[in-house]
Simulated scan of single mutants.
Amino acid sequence: MAGRPNGRRVTSGDVAREAGVSRATVSYVLNDNPHQTIPEATRRRVWDAAARLGYAPSAAARTLRTGRSDIVLGLLPDWPIQHVLGRLIQQLTNAFAEHELTFLVHSSAQPARPLREIWKTVTPAAVLALHDFPESEAAAMRAAGTEVVLAVHGSTERELRPPLVSEEPIGAAQARYLADVHHRLGYAYPDLPRLDVLAQPRVEGVRGVCAELGLPEPDVRTVPLSPDDAVEAVKAWLAAEPPVTGICAFNDDVAQTVLVALRSLGLSAPDDLAVIGVDDIPGSATAQPPLTTVVRDIDAIAQGLARRIVDALDGKELPMGLIEDTLRIRIRRSA
């Protein structure tokens, strides 16, 4: 009786019939029950039958057996899913898999289903949000049985859920690198308000370094991902008094738009305006000129976030500190 019976979902009863054993024996074997002594030959017969039929225990059955779902629900804000975010999702998936947890991602980009419908449907063991959300929602999740609710970038009630990963050191690293040569800095802010949760702390990092070194307040200007629109920001930086000579960009996409705007004005980096980005996306090395950028350790961030979730599920007291985020500057020719 190899194959899925009549196209329906394979059950443990099908496996039992295929292997010639009871359903209880199938349950003991597939759940690796430590309190039952099952002959090795019988175990092999059950596993072989399950493999032939393509049997997989349902999520509900696993929850009943273990007392907990194996799902970690990842909540994404309405952000562009590009190189760095995609890599973080992949590394989180791998990190949770090491602990036999499944990372299930839900984006809030419209017309997505409401958040409450999602977590009520999957009843996750834990929720990891990349954006803030109301504390009332977190309380409702916990009341419904979700054991752990964490927000990477904190919440509006920051005393309740402080951020796990800080963005300020990124702006500070950019500013420190440029300040060795440039004494008036600008900041290229993204033209997407939903990215404010990342961009505002990075600007604060630049401001903090400027204040520490006695430099003027950074000249912050919004830079759309359109070279024609970016030209106006570049002109304003160069016309400032004193003129801006170094730009900290929100990320590599914004930085490359600034580089294109410079070329359209017959100018170049770093001679007329030095530019440093963030993320080291694949196109940064081939930009004209190649882009200097801040590189984050995405693998370490993912491992750190997964460890916080796993420890919390195991009932361990969570540390109050930030997830380690080692930064380095990849030096190229733009700054």
Score class of each variant (00 low, 15 high):
Pro114Gly: 09
Leu101Ala: 00
Val149Phe: 10
Asp229Pro: 02
Arg45Asn: 09
Gly67Asn: 10
Ser334Glu: 04
Ser284His: 10
Glu100Pro: 06
Thr222Gly: 04
Leu88Ala: 05
Leu130Ala: 00
Ala302Lys: 02
Leu225Arg: 15
Ala236Val: 03
Ile298Glu: 07
Leu291Gln: 05
Asp272Trp: 00
Pro124Phe: 04
Ala335Ser: 14
Arg8His: 08
Ala140Lys: 10
Val231Phe: 03
Gly74Ala: 13
Glu147Pro: 02
Trp47Met: 13
Thr93Phe: 07
Thr63Ser: 14
Pro114Ala: 12
Ala255Asn: 08
Val275Gln: 11
His183Arg: 15
Thr63His: 03
Arg65Tyr: 09
Leu291His: 04
Ser27Asp: 12
Val127Tyr: 12
Ile281His: 08
Ala125Thr: 08
Gly283Phe: 12
Leu215His: 07
Ala143Ile: 01
Leu185Pro: 04
Thr222Met: 09
Thr63Arg: 15
Leu225Gln: 13
Thr326Glu: 14
Pro319Arg: 03
Leu262Tyr: 05
Asp297Pro: 08
Trp237Phe: 04
Pro282Lys: 11
Arg8Trp: 01
Val254Tyr: 07
Ser268Arg: 13
Val165Met: 05
Pro162Ser: 07
Ala60Glu: 14
Leu104Met: 14
Pro224His: 09
Met320Leu: 11
Cys248Val: 00
Pro111Ser: 04
Gln288Met: 13
Glu167Trp: 02
Gly7Val: 07
Asp228Trp: 01
Gln90Trp: 05
Trp119Ala: 05
Arg52His: 13
Arg332Trp: 09
Ala269Lys: 00
Gly74Lys: 08
Glu40Tyr: 10
Ala144Arg: 09
Gln200Asp: 14
Leu238Asp: 06
Ala126Thr: 11
Ile301Cys: 02
Trp119Cys: 08
Pro169Ile: 02
Asn31Ser: 15
Val254Gln: 05
Ile276Thr: 02
Glu147Gly: 13
Val294Cys: 00
Ala233Thr: 12
Asn33Tyr: 09
